[in-house]
Design a protein around this nucleic acid. Sequence first.
DNA 1: TCCTATGTTGTATG
DNA 2: ACATACAACATAGG
Length: 274
Amino acid sequence: MPELAEVHYFFRQWDPGRGERVVKVRLHAGKRIFRDADTEALAKQLEGSVLKAGETRGKQMLFSFSGGGLPWDCRGWLGLHLGMTGKLYAEPLPFAGDAHDHLVLETGQRSLVYRDPRLFGKVLFETGREAPEYWRLLPPEVLSREFSRERMENFLRRRAKSPVKAVLLDQRVFPGVGNWMADEMLWQAGIHPAAPAGHLDDETCRRLYLAVRHVCRVAMKTVGVDYRDPPESWLFAHRWKDGGTCPRGGGPLVRETIGGRTTCYAPERQRLPG
DNA sequence: TCCTATGTTGTATG
DNA sequence: ACATACAACATAGG
C-alpha cells in the first residue's frame, strides 16, 4: 500500500509518542519483518527509553530513542519499512493488539503500533551516536535540490532498454515512487509505460521530470497530510475500476502488466514511440 | 476456487 | 561487473 506520501502519513501517526517513555516493548520475534533485526536487543534497549525524533526518506522511516537500556552515549535507531501492507497507529490505552500488530511500543499514555498482515515490511534496529550508515547513504529525495534532471536522465540512459515504468519504480533514483505514482507520472507526462527508458527525446524527458516532481509534491500535500485523495482530475481516481475512462480526453483506460506490475494508462494519450 | 494486491529481493540469464 | 526478467515472500478480500 504505502508509497511516498502514505509512508509520511503513517510516520506522522506516531507523533503523539514524541517525548514519551517506552515502558514496554511487545513484539512477535521470528516474524519475517524482523529477519534483519536483533529483536532481543531491540526490546531490551528500547524499554525505558524516550522516543526523541523521527524522519522519512522515500519509503523508509527512522525513529531515534535515548536512555533506557541504551548505552549512555548512544541512541537507538529504529528503522521501519511498511512493505505492501504495513501501517503505523497510535492507540489509546488499554490496547489489546491485533494478530498482525508485530511491534508495539507502550508508553504510559498510548501504544505505538506497527501492523503488517503480509509481512513484506522490515524492521531494523541499531545503536550508535549517529544515524546508521545505510540511512546516511540513502539517495536524494525526489523533492530535494539534488534530484536534478541530469541525475534522472543519466539513470534513464543506464536502464535504456527497460520499460520506463519499471525504471520509475527503482528506489535508488526515485525513492518513494510506487505503482500508482509511477502510473500517474507517466499519464500526466503523456508517456507510454512500456516505452524504453533510453529512447525518450529531450522534450519528453522534460515533461517526465516535471511530472515526477509534481506528483510527489501534490501527493505530499493531500495523501501525506490527512490521507485525502489526490485531485479528481488525476488518473488516481479512475485507475482502479474496470472500464474507467481517462479524465483528460475521455478515452478508455487499460490495465496490463508492464515491468512486472499492473499498469494503468490511456493509450490515446500515451503512445509508444516508433 | 481463482485472481488480485500502493513492495523488495534473490536468482538465473544474457 | 552490469542489465534484465521473474519467482518468491504471506495474507486477505473480491
